[in-house]
Amino acid sequence: MSELLELIDLTKSYGYGINAVDHVTVSLPRGKIIGLLGPNGSGKTTMIKMINGILRPTSGEIRVNGMEIGPETKARISYLPDRTYLAPGDTIHTILDYFVDFYEDFSRDKAEQMLADLQIDPNAKMKTLSKGTKEKVQLILVMSRQADLYVLDEPIAGVDPAARDYILRTILNNYRQDSSILISTHLISDIEQVLDEVLFMRLGKVILHTSAAAIREQQGKSVDAYFREVFAC
């Protein structure tokens, strides 16, 4: 079976002579949680946006399950962006209807259960929620799908430490064993224990792709400590 996600010589240029993503070739397997790690401006979000089809590559290819980005791949990728993308005037209830209609793999029961766990009122309008609660709602929507690939861009950046544990548990408890999760974050220590693999990015290039276990064994330090060493200013 082919790799779940393949990036082949992927480049995104914004026209200033600098490539935000610079000839990246990488394959991500099934059944893994992969940390996409790098300092600000390293190209993580640009790469994620291209994987999700909301940014067109300047050159190169992206394949999900062997298919080019399109409706078929979007049906298999569950994406959490680094911003609030839900209409402020919509209630959570309306948004659940929307997800039920468009994503065959969306479980309304699971979403409602998670909302109840976090004591979020499904009748509340998005504009009445705090920033942290909005992020929780979005994560619930994303993790209530049975996707092949979950792409989470800074999923725990805007929430308090207590909620982070719940979110991480939510992520771990709600994905299929044959699906993969690509997580971009700065808060490495919070997610380190769940990572199978890591991708280090710098200036648009992937400078390291290895397993978290390999870093611990070969470098004798945690992923967080190694990251700080590699990207020390």
Binding site: N52, G53, I54, G70, P71, E72, K74, A75, I77, Y79, P81, R83, T84, Y85, L86, A87, F102, Y103
Partner: peptide
């Protein structure tokens, strides 16, 4: 504009539709 090209576009353009 909002639903296509602002933050809400992130939802619109990740729907499994052409």
């Amino acid at each position: 504009y909002r639903s296509m090209y602002s933050d809400q576009g992130y939802l619109t353009h990740t729907l499994p539709v052409k």
